[in-house]
Design a binder for these strands. Structure first.
Length: 427
RNA sequence: GGAGAGGUGGCAGAGCGGUUGAAUGCACCGGUCUUGAAAACCGGCAGGGGUUAACGCCCCUCCAGGGUUCGAAUCCCUGCCUCUCCGCCA
C-alpha cells in the first residue's frame, strides 16, 4: 500500500509516478472519496465525543445519587444518528481501502521508463555462451531420452503443466535445492526456515497477491480462505506481519526451499513445452527486511546472492532492470536474472529480485523500533529467487549436455550427487 | 473426535457495567548518586487516526465480527487461536 498521507497531500505526484507504469490514477474519484471520508469522519467523531461526555456525566450523576432521567432523555436521540453516520463512514472507508489496495507501488527513480519487457535495461552479462559441435537438444528431449523426465505420466496423474522426475534427474533436482540452501545459509547469512505451503488471505493481502491477482492462485475448497503459496515470499515475509522487531534483529534474512503453485491463468499457449512454466515448481527464496535507508543496498546484495548460484554452477546469464511498465505490482525496483538456455537459444528468467520498500510492510504492519525515535516504524522488504529450482535444472541439463545425450554434473554439485560426474541413460 | 481453561500494552500479569487506554512487575529511555559500573531513588514509556502553524484537543483499538446498554476490557452470541486431559494418528 502507498503512504495514505502522500496520496492525500500530493495526489498529482503519485499519479505521475503511477503513469510511468501505465496505471491511471483516478484523481477525481479519489478526491471525492476523501472529501466524503473527511466530512463523515469529523461528524462521527463529534457525535462520539458528545455520547462519551454525556455517558460520563450520567455515571457521575448516578454515583452522586442524582436523578439521571433528564440526562438519559438528552442522549436518547444521539444513538440512532450516530449509528447511521458510523455505517456511512464504514462504507466510505471500505471503499477507500479497496481503492488503495488496488494501487501498485511507485517505480523507483532509477527504473527505466518503458512499456513491456522490450524496454528492460540490460545491466551486465556473465559467462560464456557454450558452443556445441552438435545440435543441442532442449531439456525435454534430453530428459525423456535419459528416462528422467516424464511429462506424459504427469499429464495422466494430474494434467498439463506438471512433470514427473525420475532417478538421476530427480536427484539432480534435489541436489540443486540443497546446494542453494547450503550456499545461502553458510555463505550469505540467511537463516533457513520451513514454512506452511498453505496460507490464509491475510498473508496474501500482506505481500500484495490479493486482492488483485486472485486468478493466479489455487484456493482450497472449504469455508476458510486458504490458498496454496505461489511463492515462499508469502509465508516468509508474513513472518513479520503485525510484529515490531527490535533494532538488533535487523537485518532480518531468511531462506526457504518450497514448492510454488500457480494457476497460470492467462498463460494459455505460453511455454507449453517442458518445465519452464509449471503449475507446481520448487524455488529457493531469499527474503530480507531491513532499515529503510538500507534497502537499496540490500537489493544489490541479495541480487548478488542469487547471481552467485549461477556463477558457481557456471551458467551464463544476464541481469536486467525491469522497466516501469514491466514491474510487478508491489515492487519499486526489480532485477531479473536471465539464464542462457541452449535449447531455446535465448536468455530466460530464472530469478526475480525486488525491493518493495515499505509497500508490503505497510500492508502487513511489519515494523521495527527505531532507537533514534523510540517509535515503531515501517520496515523495508526485499526478496528474490535464489533460484527457481526447476528452471535451474533445465539450465544445467541444456548447458551441460554432451553429444551422446548424457549430462555432465557441474563440479560444484558433485558433493550433493555422491560424487557422480555424469548422468547417463537409465536401463 | 470428546471434556475443560483461556486470549489485556515489548514481555509477565491485575482489572466492580461508569473520570480505566488500562493497576503492578520486568524490559527500555532520561536523570540523581558514583572515579566508572551495579544497586538504590526520581521521572518517562501502547498503537493507529482526525484536526492544528504549533501547544493542544478529539476519535478508535484490551483476538476478530455481531449484539445488549446512556455507557462494554468487563454481559450475550458466533468465529479464530492457545493451553490441559481423554481418544485417534505420521
Amino acid at each position: 500500500m502507498l503512504d495514505p498521507k502522500l496520496l492525500r497531500s500530493e495526489p498529482e505526484k503519485v499519479a505521475a509516478a503511477l503513469a510511468r507504469r501505465g496505471f491511471e490514477l483516478d484523481l477525481k474519484g479519489l478526491a471525492e472519496l476523501e472529501r466524503r471520508r473527511k466530512s463523515l469522519q469529523t461528524r462521527v467523531q463529534e457525535l462520539q465525543n458528545r455520547r462519551n461526555t454525556k455517558s460520563k456525566a450520567i455515571g457521575r450523576a448516578k454515583a452522586a445519587g442524582e436523578d439521571i432521567q433528564p440526562l438519559l432523555d438528552e442522549v436518547a436521540a444521539l444513538g440512532d444518528e450516530l449509528k447511521a453516520e458510523e455505517e456511512a463512514l464504514r462504507v466510505v472507508q471500505e471503499e477507500l481501502r479497496q481503492f488503495q489496495l488496488h494501487l501498485p507501488n511507485l517505480p523507483h527513480e532509477t527504473v527505466p521508463d518503458g512499456k513491456d519487457e522490450e524496454d528492460n535495461r540490460e545491466e551486465r552479462r556473465w559467462g560464456e555462451i557454450p558452443e556445441f559441435d552438435f545440435e543441442p537438444m532442449d531439456h525435454v528431449d534430453l530428459g525423456e531420452a535419459l528416462g528422467g523426465l516424464d511429462f506424459q505420466a504427469a499429464a495422466r496423474l494430474t494434467g498439463s503443466r506438471f512433470v514427473v522426475m525420475h532417478g538421476q534427474i530427480a536427484r539432480l533436482h534435489r541436489a540443486l535445492a540443497q546446494f542453494m540452501l547450503d550456499l545461502h545459509t553458510r555463505e550469505h547469512g540467511y537463516r533457513e526456515s520451513y514454512v506452511p505451503y498453505i496460507v490464509n488471505d491475510d498473508s496474501l493481502y500482506g505481500t500484495g497477491q490479493l486482492p488483485k491477482f486472485h486468478e493466479d492462485l489455487f484456493r482450497l475448497e472449504g469455508e476458510r480462505p486458504w490458498y496454496l503459496i505461489p511463492t515462499a515470499e508469502v509465508p516468509l515475509t508474513n513472518l513479520l506481519r503485525d510484529q515490531i522487531l527490535p533494532a538488533d534483529a535487523l537485518p532480518f534474512k531468511v531462506v526457504a526451499h518450497t514448492p510454488c503453485f500457480r494457476s497460470e491463468a492467462g498463460a494459455y499457449g505460453k511455454d507449453t513445452r517442458g518445465m519452464i512454466r509449471q503449475h507446481q515448481f520448487d524455488k529457493v527464496e531469499l527474503v530480507q527486511a531491513v532499515r529503510p535507508e538500507e534497502s537499496f543496498e540490500a537489493l544489490e546484495a541479495l541480487t548478488g546472492h542469487a547471481e552467485k548460484v549461477l556463477q558457481l554452477l557456471e551458467l551464463p546469464y544476464r541481469v536486467v532492470t525491469l522497466c516501469s511498465g514491466d514491474l510487478g505490482f508491489s515492487a519499486t525496483k526489480t532485477y531479473d536474472l536471465e539464464v542462457w538456455l541452449p535449447g531455446q537459444g535465448r536468455y530466460r528468467e530464472i530469478s526475480s529480485c525486488s525491493n518493495f520498500v515499505d509497500f508490503q510492510a505497510r500492508r502487513m504492519k511489519a515494523r521495527w523500533r527505531n532507537p533514534d525515535t523510540g517509535k515503531p516504524e515501517l520496515l523495508h522488504t526485499i526478496n528474490g529467487s535464489g533460484l527457481a529450482v526447476g528452471r535451474t535444472l533445465v539450465a544445467v541439463m541444456e548447458n551441460y549436455q554432451q553429444g551422446d545425450g548424457s549430462i555432465r554434473v557441474p563440479e560444484v554439485l558433485r558433493p550433493w550427487m555422491g560424487g557422480q560426474e555424469q548422468i547417463v541413460p537409465e536401463g
